[in-house]
Amino acid sequence: MNIIVCIKQVPDPEIPPVKFQIDPEGKKVIPPDGVTPVISVFDERAVEAALKLKDKYKAKVTALTLGPDSAKAVIRHALAMGVDAGVHIQYEAAGELDSFGTAHVLMKAIEKIGDYSLVLCGRQAADWDAGQVGLLIAENLGIPVVTVAKKVDLQDDKLRVESVIQDGYHVMEVSMPALVTVSSEIGLSRLPTGIGIVKAARVKIENLSVEDIGADIPEARCTELIKLYVPVRDIQCQIIEADTVQESAEELAVRLREAKII
C-alpha cells in the first residue's frame, strides 16, 4: 500500500499575536522575523494518520509539498516522524497560487509519483483555512474523497473512514485509490524521535520543478482576495462581585444567558 501525504509549510501559529503582521496593500502576511515556519498542524495529523496505517499494514508513505526552497524543512519534519520518502515541488511563487492552482500542481505531482492507494491531506491549511485543496486534488484525479476524518483504517480491500459531523461522525466505506482529509480529532501526532531526526537528515528528498511534473501554472487566479485585515477585537471585562463562589457562578450564568452565549 502506497500513501501520499500532502503537507504545507505555514507561519508558526504559536508566535505571540504581536508578532503577526500583514501588508494590507499587498494583501500578504509578513513572515515574522526570526521565526522558522512549521508544518501545518492539520497536515501533521494527516502524516500521523498515514503512519498509523504504516504501523499496522507496513505501507510506504511519501510526503509531498509544494513551496519555495525553505518548504523542504516540512518534508524533513515528516521524515523525522517516520515517513519513508519525500518529494518537494520547488516553486518560489507558490504563495501566489490559490487553492485551484495549488491543487493542479499537487495533482500533477501525485500523478508523477504514481502507484498510490491513498492520498491524505489536512482538513485545511493552518494559515488560510480555505479547506479546498484536498477536495480539488480528488476532483482533478477523479477519485473519491472523504473529508474531516477522525479515523482511517482498512477493511478488506476498502478504506473505512470515520468522518466528523457536528454531533458525531459518519462511518464511510470507500474504494481505493481515494483521498481523505484528516482532522485534529485523529489525535495528537507523534513527536519525532532522536533516531528519526538523525535518520531523516540522511534521506535524499526528491526535488522537482513544476516543469518536471508537467504542471501548467494558471495565469489568473480563480479566486480573488478582496481585502486582508486583522479584525479589531473590542474586549470589555466585567468583574462579578458576590459573597460566595456559588453566587458568583449563578450571576455569571445569568449574564451569559442574557448575552445569549448559553
Binding site: K72, A73, R76, H77, A80, P192, I197, A200, A201
Partner: peptide
C-alpha cells in the same frame, strides 16, 4: 540546520 530546527520544534 534542518535537524537542529526539528530538535527545537520537537
Amino acid at each position: 540546520t534542518e535537524t537542529q530546527d526539528i530538535v527545537r520544534t520537537t
